[in-house]
Nucleic acid binder design. Sequence first.
DNA 1: TGAATTGTGATTGTATGCAATTCTACAATT
DNA 2: AATTGTAGAATTGCATACAATCACAATTCA
Lengths: 226, 226
Amino acid sequence: MNKTSAINRNPLHSQVAATVRDRIMQGELRPADRLSEIALCEELEISRTPLREAFKLLEAEGLVTIRPHKGAIVAEISIQEIGEVFDLLAPLEALGVRLAMTRMSAEDKSRIVALHDQMIQFYESGDREGCFLTDYEFHNTLIGFAQHDVLQTTHQSLSNRSQRGRYLAPRFDQQKLDIAMAAHRELIVSIKDDEIEKSAQIMHDHVTLTGKFVVDTLRDSGVARD
Amino acid sequence: MNKTSAINRNPLHSQVAATVRDRIMQGELRPADRLSEIALCEELEISRTPLREAFKLLEAEGLVTIRPHKGAIVAEISIQEIGEVFDLLAPLEALGVRLAMTRMSAEDKSRIVALHDQMIQFYESGDREGCFLTDYEFHNTLIGFAQHDVLQTTHQSLSNRSQRGRYLAPRFDQQKLDIAMAAHRELIVSIKDDEIEKSAQIMHDHVTLTGKFVVDTLRDSGVARD
DNA sequence: TGAATTGTGATTGTATGCAATTCTACAATT
DNA sequence: AATTGTAGAATTGCATACAATCACAATTCA
C-alpha cells in the first residue's frame, strides 16, 4: 500500500531467528562458530536488541548456546545428543503414525504415497541428496496429518536437531539407504492396509535404526565430537 | 544499581524468568492475565530489556503468549492442550522407565521406593495435596535416573505444562486417587522384579489414565476453556 | 625465567529514549 | 441508537548509550 512491498507484519526478532536458524540448519554456520552480536547486527542491518531476542528463541530450540558474558555460539552437536534425539523421535513418530492413520483423509493418504513415490524416483536415479530431503518431508508431513499441536511442535524441534546432525554427516551409503527404503515401503503397505499398530511398530523401528545409522555415520566421518 | 547482597552471578533475565515461571506454575498468575511490562518492571525493579528477554524464554516453554504489539499474557490452557501433553508424556515416561531401570543404582532404586512410601503415607492420612506433590516428584525423579539429557529437558517442559493444568483443577477424588495409587504400587513391584517392558507398559497406561482424569476433572470444574 | 597481576580493549548485560502500533473515548454521521 | 472516524493516551518494538565482565597481553616481582 505504501512501501515497495507489503508492510512487514511480523517482528524483526522472529525474522532474524528464521534467518539464523536456516543458516545453522544448513551448515552455513557450523557448530561452535561464534555468533558475534556486532558482526551479525551489521550484516543484517539491525540493532542488538532484536538479535538477542532471537538468540533466546534459538537457544530454546537447542540450536544456539548462550554462555553468560562470553557470547553466543552455534550449539555444538555431540554424537550422544543426536542419538538421544532419535531415542525420543522413535516413540513420538510412532504415536504420530497412529494418530495420523485415524485422522487423515484420502487426499492426505495419497499425498504420503506421492512423497514415497518421489523418494523412490530419487532412489532409483541414485540421487542421495534428493532421498535425504524427501525423507525429511515424508516424516514431517505424516506428523502433520496427526493434527496434534503438541506433538507437532515437539517433533519439529527434535527433528530440526536431528536434521542438523544429518546435514553435517555424509549421506547414507547404499546399504543403509536400501534398508531405509525397505522400511518406508513396508510402512506404506501397512498404512494402506490400515494396520495401525503394525505401522506404528514399523515407524518406531525405522526411526531407531535411522538414528543408529546417523550416529555411526557421524562417528566414522568425525565431524562431530563424542 | 545497588547490590545489597553478594554479587549475582547469573543474568537478570534468567532470574526474572524463574520468578515469573514460579508465579505462573503456582497459579498466582492465572491464564490470560496480562503481563504488563512496566508494571512488572517496577515491581521487580529492573528495566524492560531483561524482562522482555525472560518473556521469550517463557514463551518457548509454553507458559507465556506474546501477541505482537499487544503485549504478553499468561498462556491460556486449553483442555485439549493438556490432553495432548499427556499423549506425549505417556510414551516418554515409558521410555524413561526403561532407561532408568537399566541405569539406576541400588540407592536410586531405594530413593524411588522411599518416594512411593511417602506417597502412601499421604494417601493413608488423606492428604491429597501431599499425594499430588509427591507424585510429581516421583515421576521427575524416575526420569532423572534415566540419565538422558534430551528426555530430561523435553519431559521437564511437558511436565511443567501438565502440572499447570493440574494446579488449576481440584485434586483427584478418592476413586481416581485409588486407581493412581494402585498403578504406582504395581509399578514399584515390577521395578523390583526388574521387569522392564512390563514396567514401561504400566507407566504408559498410568500416565495415559492420569491424563484422562485430569482432562475430566478440568472439564467438570470449568476452570479451563475447551 | 616464570608465575602472578594488573591494565586495556573488546564484548556482553542492562537501562533508557524514541518511533511505531494499538487501544480508548468521544464526537460526527447515518 | 448504532456505526464510523479520529485524536490522544498507553504500550510495545527497536535503537542506542552506558555499565559490567571477560580475555589477553604487557608488566612486575620472586
